[in-house]
Amino acid sequence: MTANPTREQALENASQVIERLRKRCQHAIRGREDVIDLLLIALMADGHVLLEDYPGSGKTTLAKTLGDSIIDDNPQEKIAAFRRIQFTPDLLPSDITGVSVFEPDKGTFEFRPGPIFAHVVVGDEINRTSPKVQAAMLEAMAEKQVTVDNVSHQLDDLFFVIATQNPRDQAGTYPLPVAQLDRFLFKIRMVDIERSAEIDVLASYKKRRAESTEELPRVTRSQVMEARRAIDEHVHIHPEVHTCLVDIARNLRKSPQVMQGVSTRSLVLLLPAVQAEALMRKRNYVLPEDIERLAPHVFTHRMELAPGAEDPHRLIKECAKPALEALSRQALKS
């Protein structure tokens, strides 16, 4: 792995960035290593995450830690590292995007950015707010800009949303349609953490409160952006991987248990994610294992199952298996 020193260096830096972020997150949250990994992958792949879990599972802490871990080194704009929006039915789009306020001193309207202008934004219970607000939020996620009074305001490049919704307690909610769910790279269903991890959470609670994460090294915004670029450029995707992804998607569409298969866009979004995953596994190329790990999180919320079908994770695994096996075998032939 010494062919291209700059490439190696860039990847090395990227994995260091990821490692630092991971360390900080793991220090703050116990027993959620898988979720942390997925979050970091989404961050590196420039995607957003929808967490499905119950209150008190540590998602705000996680998002806050992540936001705190990134130092804003952009001097021009003053953007908060972390913001949290609690979505309610009476929220208005301007509550999140910001409003133009009349400045009597200058005699002009001035834009006051809303909470969405941050590096890491946590949208709590996004399904509780009205579709109008959801649409504004999702536009911001997709376009990385907000439009207020016909003026578009660019969001930061790092803009990373962690939205949550409660899988139970669906009364009075506005469930996100599939088209809007498509804005999220991952939908992560958090399962209860292990017993030992939970005990650890209680045991180390005081200690962790005392010695804050401040001691652990942080990363700068530009470092994160650099890591994103390095992953995109230097983690190799074998052409067979493309074949494999397309085959998985086709298998899913063909399956009688699937009513609406996954889109081509989801495959495109999956590519940076598997690259990030590969780097996290200390590799500069993508393997079938990466796809196997990420595909369920990317595909579940993008497809519609036929009536009677359940457990989309298993279904995706089954549909992916032949294509993954073919990719594995390809590796022995060449």
Binding site: M1, A3, N4, H234, H236, H238, V241, N284, Y285, V286, L287, A331, S334
Partner: peptide, 13 residues
Amino acid sequence: MHLDRVMGPPGTP
């Protein structure tokens, strides 16, 4: 080692 060669970026020795 094998996967580095097969799946890795071209040019890896």
